[in-house]
Amino acid sequence: MNNLVEIVNLTKKYGSNVAVNNLTVSLPKGKIIGLLGPNGSGKTTLIKMLNGLLTPTEGTIMIDGNYVGPATKSKVAYLPDRTYLTMNQTIREILDYFQDFYADFSRERAEEMLKSLGIDPSVKMRTLSKGTKEKVQLILVMSRDASLYILDEPIAGVDPAARDYILRTIINNYNPEATVLISTHLIEDVEQVLDEVIFMRYGQLVLYTSVDNIREEKGKSVDAYFREVFAC
């Protein structure tokens, strides 16, 4: 079995509102997959369920043969769409924290990346700009040798130069045996690095195919095809 993630009949309801609707999909190992869809399509809900931050209403998720729990959390490196680090800690203290809890965390790699960006590990998180905080979080996540990297809007809210840096960091640091799931609105910026794409709408799977397939069969870029599929 070459699939890393198996999602079967997954549903998440908030009262009468269905955020993810009976989703069944399998994600293979060793691919960079774009999770694409308009606002409210259920991307973040799906990501939160993969990380155990939301409990599914129905259905199951298995990652590397395990249901979501401590075993999967030790293999999943997650970059949320918000700052989740404690603001009154220094970067060095946060490195200690990651080193203590994640066996696959490479402190050397993290320190190298921080050094290359000129970020002083002795400063407190609260003193950093929004963009730098995002870079620190990305460095922490990409310094792990995880089986699955889940990146929720990793390039939103940063300038184009920072976007390039972030994408380079992802490409240069992820474990080639691992899968990277990237959720984003900025398709044009990320499609160069994607192998496959998942289109979601109203919590359902619209399309799951390879980027090459879209280019060859549709004769369009992913961004152009996305605009066509989700045209208002």
């Binding site: 155990g52 931050l53 401590p70 959390k73 997650y78 949320p80 404690t86 809890f101």
Partner: peptide, 17 residues
């Protein structure tokens, strides 16, 4: 704060029960 706000995203994704 550490369990149910943004910081909870880190607490609940640690490989612990």
């Amino acid at each position: 704060r550490s369990m149910y706000t943004d910081e909870g995203y880190l607490s609940h994704t640690l490989p612990v029960t």
